[in-house]
Design a protein around this nucleic acid. Structure first.
Lengths: 154, 154
DNA sequence: TTGACTTCCATAAAATCCCATGATATTCCA
DNA sequence: TGGAATATCATGGGATTTTATGGAAGTCAA
């Protein structure tokens, strides 16, 4: 399997550890990674997660080292400074930095949400709300490509 | 590839010593370095930091310019003459020259800010301000330059 | 010898590793 | 097919290691 699919809700323990769903670990491992990269979503609702390959692609897009480019500076600051690479421990867990958890309103439990190339980590109820909105929008737009959407989580 | 990611705030002690974050030391070590190169940022807000490899790439870039042009002169002056190579001691610390610290307004604490290929050292509050600006700019630009790619963002 | 820089050592906090457990899923065979 | 034997997984807790930081002792040059 090569895609992050489905949604899993796991516990955040007292030490701040969370199990990465085994299926997601398998996807990462298939790409040769034993770590995950996390960064806040653009609008701050949740946490984006991906393998280092995605970060490298982003950095390439930003451009090589060009110290005079203001755009490069902005991207570098906004993306790289908030991103963290977390090693996955022997039991399949990571330690999510407190700041990211607080930022996403996560406490006690979190939802791992597959998105294909990447996944996200949400406060479970916030994700449910967000999903309803997304579904409503999809229905409204009669998006034919998402016709059967949602089957993985019910 | 290992990248400098995330932001760490560490103390500058009375002797001027600062711990380089372990994650950053690991990146440097993976490239075979036991030292860091520091130089003032172009606009003087902070300190740029990287491994010797990045300096070599920069020198190549400069070398491509006409040796008589003013550009070459100013690049060489700005980048190479102010740069210092600092050894990382047995406890993972460096001694940042006073001039660089003062120039960046650093005292007591400093923020190590990952930028992928390189990192920067900031006075913590100055960086927070800068980051807000950078993020606003990145959001604004995102649609046109990074539109849709990577799947890492919401 | 004084001052500046390096090793070296001590410590508290934090991160990481290791093992145990219960729950769920999977395999295997009569 | 049923159901026991076996794996896998998420989770808890303790032991061990790493990290950041402070201070003392050793080096070297002016």
């Amino acid at each position: 399997m090569a895609l992050f699919l489905s949604t899993y809700v796991n516990k955040v323990d007292k030490k701040g550890r969370v199990s990465v769903p085994a299926k997601f670990r398998a996807v990462l491992a298939s790409k040769g990674f034993d770590s995950v990269v996390l960064l806040p979503t653009i609008n701050g609702d949740a946490i984006d997660a991906c393998g280092m390959d995605v970060m490298e692609r982003l950095l390439e897009k930003i451009g090589g080292f060009d110290p005079l480019s203001e755009d490069r500076e902005s991207f570098a600051d906004a993306l790289m400074s908030d991103a963290v690479e977390l090693p996955i421990d022997g039991d399949g867990r990571i330690m999510v930095p407190l700041e990211l958890l607080e930022n996403a309103g996560i406490e006690g439990q979190c939802a791992f949400v597959g998105r294909g190339d990447s996944f996200q980590i949400w406060q479970p109820e916030a994700f449910e709300i967000r999903k309803k909105q997304a579904r409503a929008r999809a229905v409204q737009k009669r998006a034919s490509s998402l016709g059967g959407e949602g089957g993985a989580n019910d």
